[in-house]
Design a protein around this nucleic acid. Sequence first.
DNA 1: ACTGAGGCTGTTATAATATAACAGCTTGTA
DNA 2: TACAAGCTGTTATATTATAACAGCCTCAGT
Lengths: 166, 166
Amino acid sequence: MSADPKPSPRASSRTTMGPHDHAECIAGVLREAEAAIVASGARLTPVRRRVLEILLESHTALGAYEILKRLSAEGFGDKPPVVYRALDFLREHRLAHKIERLNAFVACMHPAADHVPAFMICRDCRAVAETTSPAPLLAGDAAEIGFKIETTMVEAEGLCPKCQPK
Amino acid sequence: MSADPKPSPRASSRTTMGPHDHAECIAGVLREAEAAIVASGARLTPVRRRVLEILLESHTALGAYEILKRLSAEGFGDKPPVVYRALDFLREHRLAHKIERLNAFVACMHPAADHVPAFMICRDCRAVAETTSPAPLLAGDAAEIGFKIETTMVEAEGLCPKCQPK
DNA sequence: ACTGAGGCTGTTATAATATAACAGCTTGTA
DNA sequence: TACAAGCTGTTATATTATAACAGCCTCAGT
């Protein structure tokens, strides 16, 4: 772990839901992301960096074509592979996750941790809260049938505080 | 619970992976499915029943267009809405699940139980094992931020016993 | 500075997945 | 019989994603 001028907020409290210092949040994640990528020998190029920023700035999960629209408005390419490639890169480096349920993407809120992502997805506004999974899910069942788990994801759908009826 | 001439296998042991009496498996689930649907006042029409059977017969998750191909070969409609509507119906009645990760569908292996589905998905052959989730996942985190969970799903990807290298 | 290798960006084209909207048929009921 | 509800089938289109190739940028070795 590198020295951190200001301690970043508890990883698990980083979500797009509820009150938080968004700018600080973004800066913190970007710092960690940059460090992780450089350490791995890969390059956080302008498109890739911008896609990560767009995801970080968003309070909801974004579809690929939504991200693409913003990229092309800023002078980057406007064809699907541009955004899908950047997303693939970010996902390979664990800086972004795909919310399968929405066919949409979010920035990872704690890139430094090797974790099993778990999401709470608002079906109304698509806000997404990421926490890490509380337990080695399914490990017992997997062992029982000889299945070898490589990645796990938990997706819960419901209503975020804002979208709940009074 | 209704009287059962032969006790069906333990619900959690019903998967498309590993050895089991497939015909018995299918018959058992179909019986439970039919009962649940009749009880709810809905109708298990020929297309719907056939889609459920196709899913039950399969040892892997099936894409909608794959199911549609089989339907149309048997004289049912050959347009996407035909299969998507049947799948929607089955999912509403908890007789089928969508594996978001694969954009594919599987029959529910324990339709009688109100459960949080958890899947182990082979990335090689797409076999899917369903077990019920071991715990009220995320409940603590959800309560903490005021998120109201409606449905949860766990998807683990990896290699099934058959597809693992020796 | 030159050059080749690898990797990144941008493009064309197309594939795969999914839904909206409407017409006509079937089924149960009065 | 005749109506209402709901199911099936259709046309058309939207949305999400990938294959394949061309050109450019970057860096290491010279």
